[in-house]
């Protein structure tokens, strides 16, 4: 047990390194980004599902959409109000939310998520 000092020193070094990201970033938190809507989106007032739901679960909804379109040949989404939408990220979502940089990227960057949807799906379907 004469290694006590070495063990304690090792533990301290480990803890320091392990918690480095926390104290390095202390007090540097960026403010949460504001969601910016396009005129078209503002006009529409509602999304395919209630805003609260979309904010929390849009990724699950998109996952569900892609599953139904790709695997089950179902391409039309009917929401609770009976309104129909084509299930397409590029052609439906981005039709209203054509400001991907402001609407999608800012929040994704803030949350440190990098979905790779746009490696294949067009991010500006209107070619603007």
């Amino acid at each position: 047990m004469n290694d006590k000092n070495k063990i304690i020193a090792g533990l301290i070094v480990f803890l320091a390194l392990f918690t480095f990201p926390v104290w390095y970033n202390l007090g540097k938190a960026a403010p949460a980004p504001e969601v910016i809507l396009t005129e078209k989106a503002k006009e529409a007032k509602v999304c395919v599902m209630p805003t609260e739901y979309m904010r929390a679960n849009h990724m699950q909804l998109l996952d569900h959409w892609r599953h139904e379109v790709v695997r089950n040949a179902k391409r039309v989404f009917v929401n609770a109000d009976g309104k129909e939408y084509t299930m397409s990220l590029s052609n439906t979502c981005l039709d209203c939310h054509s400001n991907k940089a402001d609407f999608c990227d800012k929040c994704h960057d803030y949350a440190s998520v990098s979905p790779y949807c746009y490696e294949c799906h067009i991010d500006n379907p209107k070619g603007e």
Partner: peptide, 24 residues
């Protein structure tokens, strides 16, 4: 949480219409 969110958004709880998918 997702289920709750949908239920809360429905007008009359249990009987509220559920979203559906279908062929064009």
């Amino acid at each position: 949480p997702a289920l709750k969110a949908v239920a809360a958004s429905g007008e009359a709880g249990g009987g509220a219409p559920q979203p559906q998918v279908k062929k064009g």
